[in-house]
């Protein structure tokens, strides 16, 4: 089909050109891309890339764990619990998978089971930021102030900016945007060039009623990523909804 060769179809996902599945390099590329998509907040794409990486090598624990985490992020806790159970059959006693299952149970509202699994996750060999993040989430749910220490521990273990961002998302999910704000500001300090961090910061600020700050954050997000659909939509909603003197002033005099 020579006439289709010059079509510009974009970069595409790794493995698209290889119908037999990704090779070793492509598989590593899939994982990297999955993490990158996750950092951009594209959890659906990340989930697909984790699956693609696992198609070639099912022994990648990070792939299974990533799938579970993405399912949780996509509000599919029931499926995440089921999937983590399956992954734990393949990797018995894996601490991160136990933590993933605990988080899925927490999101489903089963605190008791989640706590048991989180205990198991912390007792298992090795340590990771994720286990402490899940622990912190559970501590918030059961009303213990130790969640601060858990999250600090997570940040201490992994210096990546994704950790405070996901902590902010946990706080936001639990209806504590005031606590999320500190974490997301830390994220933006660590990675001012990541648009997703600005986007989440905008959401947290909007939750807190800091509309001007939210608009600024989303504008930064749109600077870094032109045409970010969610940011544009949030911005449009915020500017269209309600009435305020400041908003009218900005509309009239174009203080944009």
């Amino acid at each position: 089909m020579a006439r289709f060769r010059k079509l510009e179809l974009g970069k595409g996902l790794p493995g698209d050109s290889n119908p037999d599945g990704p090779s070793g390099n492509e598989q590593a590329g899939c994982l990297e891309l999955a993490v990158e998509q996750r950092r951009c907040g594209n959890y659906e794409n990340a989930l697909r890339l984790y699956s693609r990486a696992l198609e070639d090598d099912k022994s990648l624990v990070t792939g299974w764990l990533g799938q579970v985490q993405m399912l949780i992020m996509l509000d599919e806790s029931v499926e995440a619990e089921l999937w983590s159970r399956k992954a734990l059959e393949l990797f018995p006693g894996n601490g991160d998978l136990l933590a993933g299952r605990a988080q899925a149970f927490r999101r489903m509202g089963d605190k008791g089971q989640a706590l048991l699994l989180s205990d198991g996750a912390l007792k298992s060999a090795g340590q990771s930021a994720y286990r402490w993040m899940v622990r912190g989430e559970l501590m918030i749910v059961i009303g213990q102030e130790t969640h601060l220490h858990c999250f600090d521990k997570a940040v201490q273990i992994d210096q990546d900016w994704l950790v405070p961002l996901e902590i902010a998302l946990i706080y936001r999910d639990l209806g504590a945007p005031s606590r999320a704000l500190g974490r997301i500001r830390r994220t933006v300090e660590l990675a001012p060039d990541r648009y997703y961090a600005w986007f989440v910061q905008g959401q947290v600020e909007r939750d807190l009623g800091l509309e001007a700050a939210a608009i600024k954050s989303w504008r930064h997000c749109l600077e870094l990523c032109h045409g970010h659909v969610d940011a544009e939509r949030e911005l449009a909603q915020l500017e269209a909804g309600g009435w305020s003197v400041g908003r009218v002033w900005r509309r009239l005099f174009g203080n944009r």
Binding site: L47, E55, K58, G63, Q67, L71, L74, V78, E79, L82
Partner: peptide
């Protein structure tokens, strides 16, 4: 191993 690696979706 032959295992389905695509998670169920809601």
């Amino acid at each position: 191993a032959l295992i389905d690696v695509h998670p169920p979706r809601a």
